[in-house]
Design a protein around this nucleic acid. Structure first.
Lengths: 227, 227
DNA sequence: TTATAAAAAGTATTATTTACTTTTATAAAA
DNA sequence: TTTTATAAAAGTAAATAATACTTTTTATAA
């Protein structure tokens, strides 16, 4: 049985997930269409209450799994949002996380059932409360991460071409990176394994497929992108 | 009058401040000797409860001011610590901040009164709960910041020599940076004003004093230190 | 007057970044 | 079967930055 303390607690502390995916050359965000007041029908991040006996990380993972069916997802804490009036419904403090997931692999049925939808990050609808700000901070953090570490393991299919990876980086940084220099830089990190297979969908010559090395860690000195 | 919700709230959400200062060539941390059970007599960070009508940032600033007398201090959110069993006294979630303050300028009397003391970061006593982990994360964050931005505005006196600044960086990164290269790099950032005054305490020639420019922003491309 | 010590400036080597050009491989069109 | 087209992949030259030093400057104090 829950004590009154725990019941109250459940209504004070929330998590919100900024869920990034990558599809058709665009960085996308999973958003909910709200089915409750206030702000019924408007779009919001995917959130939930933190239970009295779990960490905020746990809550973020639990909520993500309940909606996408996915587990073992890369997530990172973004920031706490705690202005007393941030939620007109009452005093709610939210810990924001961002997650990187593979759009192909998640449970589409579940997502539909929850009224969720993928939106390209540069064509987002207006979001409720301070969720727009949360998205901006998460994007900033993602860009920071992507500029020091090779992101893509969670966003791309298991086998991908260097062009696929470059397109992902183009989508994250909203710019067009030089193909030759990108290739040189990425290969110098020594974090990918080249397969003996080609993907010929993008060119006549065909591009070699790569996978991420199992346990490669990239030295923080190797900045990938300066932006 | 407070509602029961607010009373409970005050006992669930806390902040802890990792307060950095710089003195005698060492990076120091302001720690409390606990005067309450559990862990009476052991050392901890400086924390406090978040009030029902304030943001966590507000709480961190309020607590810092109450102990150092200082206002308008640079602070940054580090992370939320929320493991259900992190505080044996009960379920407490803590939002950690780090602050950079000028040791000379703070209110020494207040600090003494609170049983607080400055400890060199590489000779810290054992800390209670997960406070050691909090310090490590704050240090990491400080190093990250210092490697992209010129920190020191809040740690050094208003007028300082390039050697002072280099010593601060040496203290932050626990290494000995090359004097010539450091000077070249820092001056290239164009973030300091050179005064027409010298400080002759460190050498016979004397070193020019500098101040931070009022509104200089350093491009994130200019990484100062790679570590 | 000279020795000293750190500040400040200078330099040469190496490494990295950037903006390109050239070559390669292959499917499809002529 | 040859040519054309296209992106992959490799290569390059110039500019910029980092690194490990050396030299010169300045002014106090021996």
């Amino acid at each position: 049985m829950l004590s009154p303390y725990q019941i109250v607690f459940n209504q004070l502390l929330a998590i919100d997930n900024v869920v990034f995916g990558y599809q058709e050359g665009e960085l996308k965000l999973l958003l909910f269409e709200r089915n409750l007041e206030p702000e019924l029908g408007r779009w919001s991040l995917i959130g939930g209450w933190v239970k009295a006996d779990e960490s905020v990380e746990n809550a973020a993972i639990r909520v993500l799994k309940s909606i996408t069916g996915l587990q073992n997802i890369f997530m990172e804490q973004v920031q706490v949002f705690s202005k007393p009036d941030r939620d007109p419904g009452g005093r709610v403090i939210s810990v924001v996380f961002y997650a990187l997931i593979n759009i192909q692999e998640h449970n589409h049925q579940l997502v539909n059932q929850y009224n969720a939808q993928w939106w390209p990050v540069n064509k987002l609808p207006e979001l409720i409360f301070d969720h727009g700000q949360m998205v901006n901070m998460a994007l900033e953090k993602l860009r920071f991460k992507a500029s020091f570490d090779l992101v893509g393991r969670d966003l791309l299919p298991a086998e991908f071409t260097l062009t696929d990876l470059r397109n992902l980086y183009n989508a994250i940084f909203l710019k067009s990176l030089d193909p030759g220099n990108f290739r040189k830089k990425i290969l110098s990190l020594n974090a990918l394994d080249k397969l003996n297979k080609k993907d010929a969908s993008g060119s006549k010559k065909g591009a070699y497929l790569y996978t991420f090395k199992k346990n490669s860690t990239i030295d923080i000195k190797d900045r990938i992108i300066k932006w």
